[in-house]
Each structure stands twice: as structure tokens, then as C-alpha cells.
């Protein structure tokens, strides 16, 4: 039972970190790029763009496809 909760708490901490960084990026002047800026930068080259889109496709495959 404890392991179950600790595992879920880990996911929540990671999620909270993402939300915190996004809030800091968009609501304050702290020099942190938003997730959108990060994705735009990563997708500037073809390999980056295809890599990100494949990761998106993989999410669909992973949760729904055989």
C-alpha cells in the first residue's frame, strides 16, 4: 500500500514541477522558457520535429493500439 502511494506521489511531484515551471515561465520574469517555447525550439530541425511528432504518435499507440 505504501509503495503504491509513494509511486503515485512521485508522478504528482513531477506533474507539479511541470506546472510550476510553466507558471514561472508565463507569469513571472524568471528566465525560464515555456513548454511551448521549448517544443518550438526542439521542432526547428526536421529530426526534432519528426521526433516530437513520433513521440505524440507513440502515446496514441501505447494507450490504444495492439
Amino acid at each position: 500500500m505504501i509503495s503504491h502511494e509513494v509511486t503515485i506521489a512521485g508522478y504528482l511531484v513531477a506533474l507539479a514541477g511541470i506546472v510550476l515551471l510553466q507558471v514561472l515561465a508565463t507569469r513571472t520574469r524568471v528566465p525560464i522558457p515555456s513548454l511551448g517555447d521549448l517544443l518550438t525550439r526542439a521542432m526547428r530541425s526536421r529530426t526534432g520535429r519528426v521526433g516530437v511528432l513520433v513521440a505524440w504518435a507513440w502515446i496514441g499507440l501505447h494507450f490504444f493500439a495492439r
Binding site: V50, L53, G60, L61, A65, R66
Partner: peptide, 18 residues
Amino acid sequence: PVTACIIGLGTVVVLIGW
């Protein structure tokens, strides 16, 4: 069926990005 739909859309999107 769901596998075919996901693969089909994923392929289209990746090709657009390509």
C-alpha cells in the same frame, strides 16, 4: 480497428511534420 485508426492518423501527422 483502433490500431489501424491510430497508425493511420499518426502516419499522416508525422508525414506532415516531415
